[in-house]
Each structure stands twice: as structure tokens, then as C-alpha cells.
Design a protein around this nucleic acid. Structure first.
Lengths: 237, 237
DNA sequence: GCGGTTAGTTGAACGTGTTCAAATTTAGCT
DNA sequence: AGCTAAATTTGAACACGTTCAACTAACCGC
């Protein structure tokens, strides 16, 4: 049913997609800073102002790109996860796929983190505007953890997806700075850190580690709770 | 005669300082994005172009600010360290002082991290341009570690300053997002994490943790080595 | 069809960071 | 003092992200 059904906002969706595709294309070729909004508009065959009708700013194009990245990552990860059983193998596969998916955008990806840590930026992964993609991303790591038979304490299991998501951000940050051919170093980093993480998780699951684990998890919960919504004070009226 | 004897670049230094002071002043009042280079130039009583003679770009003003922050932090930390003996107390004091020093710049500090993770940015803490202040900052944490009587294995002791510096970046990142009055939450976070870190360090120092510790430290060394100079591939023929 | 409302589109104009050739000041030398 | 080169200073010009009032196209109830 791909027919030309008179659905609403069809035209707009088309234009929006066109602009996004064009933008990503030029981003890939020339990087983010070197890509001007005028160039995007011209190549897409629309007026400059029109790009701002669909994307509030240049940064919002990255937000859209980020969502796209996740979709591809998820699509690649699901089949891979069906073939793996252990936590270690599953985590390794998902992390490697993340880099695979991002590969074409290596030089452009620098800006991902550029504003990622900026509180006011929509790119800030803790911001409300990032809610959907962040939650989806964490959900993927929940799948990684769920599918294993590893005996992990409930309290740790609950926070693990979030922690692994943070871990992923760290790996991506490393990858952005990694100039080694074919990103060999990043893949090696993944292998080594996954191995270590696997051991740490099992160590933390050991009964005699319980007090320390509890303390650490309480801390994580505290941080999580403090971060997401910076707009508490705006509750007026 | 005047005392303009050893006037090597006196005039220039004066102007540079004037511009920096003026910039920081407006940054504090209005934040980074809202401060225009024209406003800085005007308030400092110099021409717009002149600011670019002393600071290659607006971002470089932040670099200078960053150095200033460290100087103040160091000056505040040294006396405090003389009064503390244990690793835990020393680390806590230094971390709390960091926040104290940064306090006046809370809303402005967001941009610190904005480009901090951008590989091409001079603000990137791993970039060559950040070398001096980064090394000084790590050196401060070396002082924190050295002054204790805690029995820490050599291998860990060698990497600990760097790890604590990373930890500090994490805390500052949290602080930037922390809207709680008087940054209560950040101080609480420091207390809790310092407590936990202290326990972890002692745990990691336990002989039966040696293999895991070795593995983790090898990893840290690998990361450190990969990050600083992105120009390795030019060594190649 | 027709009028009116919404969705989509346009390009000129504005403010900003940055560049640069030229003007001016300073320092060193004879 | 006079001259030259370097250091400093200037402001106009440029490119870019963003805004906005006006325009056009699509749609809906009659």
C-alpha cells in the first residue's frame, strides 16, 4: 500500500525528509561546520527559510541524525543478539555494531559530542528533547542484559542498562578521537573493556560485595534522578 | 626617566589582560552566548579587530578562563591539603574547592563542556593546546595522592592522578546540570563519591585483586596513550 | 465552485564571529 | 633626531545562522 493516499501532511513530510537526506549527505562529505544552511537549501532545491520551517536550527538536524543512527543500530543489533547467549558476547556484538553504524560519519560525529554536554542544547543526551532516543537506546541495552542467563542481582540488573548506555557514550567519545586506520583501536578498546566489564559485573554480583554494590547503586540512582529534568522550577501556573 | 625599562611586550600584555578581564566580567553577567565580541571590545575600549589580535577566537577566551580557574583552584587547595592527612579527606577538600572556585561562573560554565569533547576544538581537554593546564591539573591530584600514608600499589598510584582528574571532569559535568540551590546536590555527590572511591581504591589495593587491577590499569594506559596525540599516523612513511 | 483557514514556501534583512589591508604607535638603531 | 621594522590598533567587509512578514498552495465545509 505505497500508493498515493491523500494522507495529511504528506507534502511536508516529503520536504522534511528531502532536507534531512540532503543535509546528511553534505555533512558526510564536508563535515558539519563546513556545511552551510544555504548549501543544504540550494542542493535540496528549497528556499533557505524553508529549512527552518522543518528544523528549528542547524543543531536539530543532528538530533534527527541521532535518531536515525539509533534506528540503524537497533536494526543491526536484533539479529545479532539472537545468535549470542552470554552477556559478554552480546555486549561485544552490540558495541561493535554501534561503531559499524557510525563509521560513515566519523569526521562529522565530532559535533555530536560538541554540544552533547551543553545543558541548554537539544543535543544534550539528558535533555527532554533527547528523551525518546535516549530511552530507546537504554532499552536496547536492557535487551542485552535480559537475554543472558547470567545470575545478576536484581538491583544491579535494574541499573545495568543505564550504566551500559553511559559506557557506550564513553566508547563513542573515544572513537571520535581515534585516528587509527579502520578504527582498529576502538574495536580493541571494546574487546578489552567488555572483557573487564564482564568480570566486574560478576565480581559485583558476588554476595560479599553486596554492601559496596548497594552503596554504588544508590549513588547511580541519585545521579540519574538529579539529571533529567532541569526545569523543576518552571512548575508555576 | 620612566620605568619602561624592561618593556618587552608590556603594552600588549596590558591590553590582553584588559580584554580578558572585560570578557570574563560580561560572561559572568550575561553568559557566553549572549556576550558579543563587539560588546567586549566596546566595554574594554578597543576596536573589535583588536580582540582577535590577542585571542584567535571567542573560544580562546574560554581557554584563558580555564587556566585562570586552575590557578585559583591550586591556590585554594595547597593550604587545605596541609591540614588533611587521609586520602579521603584530601580528595574531598580538593573537589569541594573546585566547585567553590567555579561557583561564580555556573551558568557560563555550560560552554566549558560544550566544545570540550570536540576533537578539533582548542577546548578539548586532550588537545595539545590544553596540555599545560591539563598537566597542571593532574599534578594537583598527584599531590592529593602523594601526601597520604595510604598503602597504594605503585601501578595504581601512577595512574591514580589521571583517573581522579577524569573523575573531577565528571563531577563538574554534573555540577553544570545541577540546578539545586547552592549546588547542594553536587556537594552531596562529592561526599558520596569520595567515600565510594576511597573504598574502591582500598579494594583495588588488596593483593587478591591484583590480576583484575593489572588488567584495568593496562586498559587505562592504552586509552591514555591513544588519546593525546592524534597525529600518530604521520609518523608513518 | 467559493471563501476561508491552515500548511508550506520565499527571500530579504539582521546580528554575530571572523578576516584583513591599511593606519598608527612603539622600539631599536645610527 | 631621524629612519625602519615590528608590534599594535582600526573599522569596514564578509559569510553564516537565524528571523520574519509576506506570499502561494492545499484543503475543507458549504
Amino acid at each position: 500500500m505505497r500508493k498515493k493516499k491523500a494522507t495529511k501532511t504528506l507534502k511536508g513530510d516529503q520536504t522534511k525528509a528531502l532536507i534531512l537526506e540532503t543535509a546528511l549527505e553534505i555533512f558526510r562529505e564536508r563535515g558539519y561546520e563546513e556545511t552551510t544552511m544555504r548549501a543544504i537549501a540550494e542542493k535540496a532545491g528549497v528556499a533557505l527559510g524553508n529549512t527552518y520551517y522543518y528544523f528549528r536550527s542547524k543543531e536539530y538536524l543532528i538530533q534527527a541524525f541521532y535518531q536515525r543512527l539509533h534506528d540503524e543500530h537497533l536494526a543491526a543489533s536484533l539479529p545479532a543478539l539472537e545468535k549470542k547467549e552470554t552477556l559478554k558476547a552480546r555486549l561485544q556484538a552490540v558495541m561493535r555494531l554501534r561503531i559499524d553504524v557510525m563509521k560513515p560519519y566519523h569526521q562529522f560525529a565530532g559535533v555530536l559530542f560538541k554540544t552533547a554536554a551543553h545543558p541548554q542544547s537539544p543535543l544534550n543526551p539528558f535533555s527532554d528533547e533527547s528523551d525518546p532516543v535516549r530511552d530507546q537506546s537504554i532499552a536496547l541495552f536492557a535487551k542485552v542484559v535480559e537475554g543472558t542467563k547470567a545470575r545478576i542481582p536484581k538491583d544491579l540488573q535494574a541499573e545495568l542498562p543505564y550504566l551500559l548506555w553511559l559506557y557506550q557514550m564513553g566508547v563513542v567519545l573515544f572513537w571520535i578521537h581515534d585516528p587509527s586506520p579502520n578504527h582498529r583501536r576502538t574495536y580493541r578498546l571494546i574487546d578489552h573493556t567488555v572483557d573487564l566489564l564482564d568480570k566486574l559485573i560478576h565480581l559485583a554480583s558476588n554476595p560479599f560485595m553486596r554492601p559496596l554494590r548497594k552503596q554504588a547503586l544508590r549513588l547511580v540512582a541519585e545521579i540519574r534522578e538529579a539529571l533529567p529534568d532541569d526545569e523543576d522550577e518552571e512548575q508555576k501556573k
